[in-house]
Amino acid sequence: MSTRKPYVRPMAGWWLKNPVYVRYILRESTAVFVGIYAVILLVGLLRLSSGEAAWNNWLIAMQSPGAILFHVVAMGAAVYHSVTWFSVAPKVMPPLMFNGEKVPVAKIVAGQYIFAGIIYLVLLGLILWG
């Protein structure tokens, strides 16, 4: 008779058991802020489509302390999303070849930061002065 009795360990609370998992859950949580912010924009678009008075009400709502606090946290979440997004992108894209050599991952990540930085500046310039 077999005396085998393999023991299966429970997974409960796994995300707190390793700092890597904590960072992963943090990364996934940024989605909540992204989603709420997109809904805020959507509401803004709704207001915009119903005319000037409605739009101005949206602008006033954005000035409430709660809204400001949310956006400060959301901006942190968005930056964390960007950083983590760029750092895993080389795992998703096919290896980048240059002169028959694989471009090192660190260079790809750095390149993305530079590219994103330029986009941020252009976007900011267009919004503020465009």
């Binding site: 992963y24 895993v88 795992k91």
Partner: peptide, 20 residues
Amino acid sequence: VGYCSDVCPKDVDPAAAINR
């Protein structure tokens, strides 16, 4: 999650193979 590639003792980078 990407941890597989961190712990791999042979630098295989399984996360890259999966995600590509």
